[in-house]
């Protein structure tokens, strides 16, 4: 396993469409729930423990080879908001393209055949990690970190937040990311014997309601 492959996959510049998604931050900023670094941190913490943990667990399970179709259905059931399901599949499709070009693999080709319009992004992420020679831990780290880095960089653009403050938020969340990854990897491995019911199912009400509010706007900067 190449550790450097993790840096390639986790790089914010990895061309997989993430830059156009705010992870709910655009709506939360407009609604006045994110106003600066402190509220951004609370937003990210809430997202990390819910959508982030679910995503990291899905990615870990996919990285150890659990059937992607079952994981994708489990992701659907854990994502009540149709706007978020659409966003997850869009991002999944974009990641699939980037990953297939970067780490050609029969498993990624198979996934693309099975889900021409995209599987949930964390599932694709797990399969991409496998293709890159990475394991469950690395896949979970990518997913958990993305769940907070996306909103943080979007908030820099949305609020003209000091980028050092936003990066400070991510650094302060690092121990929580570690914790979430541990739980996600355990859950992902339990899925092998116990089925997808073993996956965490944490939901954040305002993330889902906010995603629907955002999708109803006529004019927006970010896709989600």
């Amino acid at each position: 396993m190449s550790r450097a492959a993790l840096l390639v996959l986790a790089d914010g510049r990895f061309p997989a469409g993430g830059h156009a998604h705010s992870g709910g931050a655009e709506e939360a900023v407009k609604a006045g729930r994110i106003t600066g670094a402190a509220s951004l941190e609370e937003f990210c913490r809430g997202r990390l423990h819910t959508a982030g943990l679910v995503a990291a667990s899905l990615a870990a399970a996919a990285a150890v080879g659990v059937d992607a179709v079952a994981l994708d259905a489990a992701a659907d059931a854990r994502t009540a908001s149709p706007a978020l399901r659409v966003a997850a599949r869009k991002l999944g499709r974009q990641l699939m393209r980037a990953a297939r070009a970067t780490w050609p693999s029969g498993e990624l080709d198979e996934l693309a055949r099975r889900f021409p319009k995209g599987a949930h992004q964390p599932v694709v992420l797990g399969v991409a990690a496998r293709a890159a020679g990475l394991g469950a831990v690395e896949a979970a780290y990518c997913a958990a970190y993305e769940s907070v880095s996306g909103p943080a960089s979007a908030t820099v653009r949305l609020l003209s937040l000091d980028p050092f403050d936003a990066t400070g938020v991510l650094a302060r969340l690092a121990p929580t990311v570690d914790l979430v990854v541990d739980r996600a990897v355990e859950a992902g491995r339990r899925v092998v014997g116990g089925g997808v019911e073993e996956l965490p199912a944490g939901a954040a009400p305002l993330l889902e309601i906010g995603a629907e509010v955002h999708a109803a706007w006529a004019v927006r900067l970010f896709a989600s």
């Binding site: 510049r13 469409g17 499709r93 990641l95 980037a98």
Partner: peptide, 8 residues
């Protein structure tokens, strides 16, 4: 830099 959404 990241043309994925446009390719889609």
């Amino acid at each position: 830099d990241d043309i994925s959404a446009n390719l889609e």
